[in-house]
Design a protein around this nucleic acid. Structure first.
Lengths: 100, 100
DNA sequence: ACATTGATTAGCCACTCCGCTAAATATTCA
DNA sequence: TGAATATTTAGCGGAGTGGCTAATCAATGT
């Protein structure tokens, strides 16, 4: 039962991370851009498409990463980010579905 | 076309308000509580169910109100809040549907 | 080894958010 | 009118967010 409680708490925390992540328009835009362009882009490609400075984009990516909304992997000198749409399902599964 | 652009911008802004509103766990809890208890509660009933001080709850309600997620109406000395589930649909209609 | 390219981390600053308490604003009732 | 009740508004303070520039790390090519 303690385990059950803990897993519920983790789930709640996960939802929290996801909803906090998508609360910022720039991060939603990053996810959409990734999705629209085949699901995978390098950090540079992403940064190039946004007005804000590269380090700012990096930080947004870090928030998305912490929420599980993107994964990354190094590819030579570049780092590839791919969108993890699965993580978005928590929004419905853990919250939205309770409403009509 | 100017009108079209403006309406898109308003929609984007509306989505922004909704997502910012539900980013906070207390506000999600308020919406769930409202829903669970028949959709309508007075400010006092809501405040009584939360640990934070009454003015804090009032401010959360204000954020939800600005996002269109609740409506309120005075009922004698009390103020009734009701959940507006319709506003939640923007999440799917204007963003989530673009993902798998 | 060294320079170059790709990306992150460090650190600063302005602003917002969210908790609180105290004061103000309805509305009802005596 | 004045007291009591229900709720909001004002205003403070600490913590977090998000923008920036400068510095750093990692991988490649010469």
């Amino acid at each position: 039962m303690a385990r059950r409680r803990q897993s519920l708490e983790s789930a709640a925390h996960a939802l929290d991370l996801v909803l906090a992540a998508i609360a910022h328009p720039a991060r939603r835009q990053i996810l959409l851009t990734l999705k629209f362009r085949g699901g995978t882009m390098t950090a540079g490609e992403i940064a190039a498409r946004f007005e804000c400075a590269w380090p700012t984009t990096t930080r947004h990516l870090k928030v998305l990463l912490a929420a599980g909304l993107v994964k990354r992997s190094r590819r030579g000198r570049q780092i590839e980010y791919r969108v993890e749409e699965r993580a978005l399902r928590a929004i419905h599964e853990q919250w939205l579905k309770y409403f009509g």
